[in-house]
């Protein structure tokens, strides 16, 4: 028997969440506000449930060993690095995050020499700074630790 493709299950569970978030409140709208969401949402919901059930009971949809796409185990560190970038930007802003992130990422993930890391980080930082802040006169996010205001979520 084939193994269950867990990526497929997770993506479909995510889809399911989106569809439920749309379909459930749509029953409460008066007038035409819920018409299109329901007409499209309910069949989509049925399809998702069908596909999920099929995959869990008779796994066959697509084997989770594609060569084209990296496995989660290898992707997880990259995702974690992106997470680090987000947290750093939120806290200390782009100006500091860009060089710090680049040096750390290139050093520990790509295993480049310190010199190469520093040169790459410096070049990218200068490029971003010159083009966005100097030429375009835009202020990059400064980080909540330096008093930047978070927009409403």
């Amino acid at each position: 028997m084939n193994r269950v493709n867990y990526s497929y299950v997770v993506v479909n569970l995510l889809y399911l969440a989106v569809v439920l978030l749309v379909v459930i409140p749509s029953f409460g709208f008066d007038g035409q506000g819920g018409l299109v969401p329901l007409v499209l949402g309910i069949p989509t919901l049925v399809f998702i449930l069908f596909c999920l059930g099929r995959e869990l009971l008779y796994p066959s949809a697509a084997p989770d060993d594609s060569v084209e796409v990296a496995p989660w185990a290898k992707a997880a560190p990259v995702v974690a690095w992106l997470g680090v970038f987000c947290v750093l930007v939120l806290l200390i802003g782009f100006q500091l995050t860009i060089p710090i992130y680049m040096v750390l990422f290139l050093r520990s993930f790509a295993r480049l020499s310190w010199a190469r890391c520093t040169v790459a980080a410096g070049t990218v930082w200068a490029l971003v700074y010159v083009s966005l802040e100097l030429v375009l006169q835009r202020t990059l996010f400064e980080g909540v630790l330096f008093g930047a205001i978070l927009p409403l979520l």
């Binding site: 493709n5 990526s7 497929y8 997770v10 993506v11 479909n12 995510l14 949809a61 697509a62 989770d64 594609s66 084209e68 796409v69 990296a70 496995p71 989660w72 992707a75 995702v79 992106l82 997470g83 970038f85 987000c86 930007v89 939120l90 782009f94 860009i98 971003v128 966005l132 375009l136 835009r138 202020t139 990059l140 996010f141 930047a148 978070l150 927009p151 979520l153």
Partner: peptide, 30 residues
């Protein structure tokens, strides 16, 4: 940084990363 500059909304950056993970998941899931 480019995405941030466009609307100057820091949540856009977070959204990009979340959608990136979804995008990868979709590729992985076929």
């Amino acid at each position: 940084a480019g995405t941030y500059i466009l609307r100057e909304n820091i949540w856009d950056v977070l959204l990009v990363v979340l959608l990136g993970i979804l995008g990868f998941g979709m590729r992985r899931a076929g």
